[in-house]
């Protein structure tokens, strides 16, 4: 490279540098947002990145377990750096609402979703819906040998053949629901019997599905969309899923949802983010990429998903709002020796 070219390229580089350093500042003076996400990074990072790109807002995300983040927010109190909590389940949001940590959301947000998908005092809205299911190996389990009720799984014929994820927030909310449907004593007895029946504990939902494919277990209790994700990249993936009999607690519908912290100093930015999550773009992403149920009706349904109406028919009648006793459930799981 001769000196003149060098000069040229250097001045170009300087120009570029000056331009890029000016641009974002001009667009958005110091608009920033901190999100605590109990939702897994691989599932939600793409949509958060899109929000960043389209708005130019500086977003920081702390990923972690939903319960962990909910408890962290309670401990951090008014000093919490979080503006938004995006939880994997309704239970943690209910607990935060009960603790008075969440701010009321404006009507512009709450009217975007049906009543089923928000709480009564409008401090959180669902961003997507999901169902609990029974996953199984179609190779090793005949269709007529499927258990009818989740309580059947304590039978000796299922010994060592079932996988679950006691440290997972969705599972914990299901346990909370069981305590409401069937009482604490029956739930405790079920958990103990399951443990005695050598139910295998996985760290998360997805490894349960993998464990079924690998032949380690024959049944599992995950959320519905994990299998669909495997199926989307590999049609022959050797796992299937179904529901227990209608109304079984283990068929419950849960939501991932979002709330704004009372301590947030970026209220308008936080509201912008929540509205974005309810926008057709984000809702379509949840349906087509994550295989969850949309909470608004402006999207094209995924062909892989069973229609929401039929899922509603299988699901037990549970008020998501009542699932706010996360602490008691965590304590129960510890006492039984699962946490």
């Amino acid at each position: 490279m001769n000196p003149r070219n060098l000069l040229k390229s250097r001045s170009f580089a300087l120009l570029g540098l000056a331009a890029t350093s000016l641009l974002p500042q001009a667009a958005n003076a110091a608009e920033s947002l901190t999100i605590y996400s109990g939702r897994t990074e691989s599932l939600v990072a793409p949509i958060i990145n899109q929000f960043k790109k389209t708005t130019g807002i500086d977003v920081t995300v702390r990923y972690g377990g939903t319960a962990q983040l909910a408890i962290a927010i309670e401990e951090e109190g008014a000093k919490s750096p979080a503006d938004i909590i995006w939880a994997q389940d309704a239970g943690a949001l209910g607990a935060l609402n009960k603790a008075g940590a969440l701010a009321a959301l404006p009507e512009s947000i709450t009217t975007r979703v049906p009543e089923l998908f928000r709480n009564h005092n409008n401090t959180w809205v669902a961003t997507s819906g999901r169902a609990r299911v029974l996953a199984y190996s179609p190779e090793r389990v005949a269709a007529d040998a499927l258990p009818k009720s989740v309580f059947d799984l304590t039978d000796p014929k299922y010994k060592g053949r079932v996988g679950w994820a006691p440290s997972n927030a969705s599972f914990q909310t299901f346990v909370t629901a069981m305590t409401i449907d069937h009482g604490v004593d029956k739930t405790r007895a079920w958990l103990e019997a399951m443990k005695a029946n050598e139910t295998k504990a996985y760290a998360k939902n997805a490894p349960i599905i993998q464990g079924i494919a690998a032949g380690e277990v024959d049944f599992g209790l995950p959320n519905h969309y994990y299998l669909l994700r495997f199926k989307a990249s590999d049609e022959a993936y050797p796992v299937a899923q179904t529901f227990f009999q209608d109304g079984d607690t283990a068929n419950m519908i849960n939501v991932a949802g979002v709330g704004m912290l009372k301590s947030s100093k970026n209220v308008s930015t936080a509201e912008k983010f929540i509205l974005f999550l309810l926008s057709p773009v984000a809702q379509q992403y949840f349906t087509s990429q994550v295989f969850e149920y949309p909470v608004t009706d402006e999207v094209i349904a995924s062909s892989l998903l069973e229609p929401f109406e039929s899922v509603l028919k299988h699901a037990p009648k549970i008020d998501l709002e009542k699932l706010d006793n996360l602490e008691a459930t965590l304590k129960l799981l510890s006492e039984v020796g699962l946490l």
């Binding site: 972690g64 319960a67 962990q68 440290s167 760290a203 965590l330 799981l333 510890s334 946490l339």
Partner: peptide, 8 residues
């Protein structure tokens, strides 16, 4: 697990 899920 305590750190990640329950954080007792």
């Amino acid at each position: 697990t305590q750190y990640n899920s329950a954080f007792d």
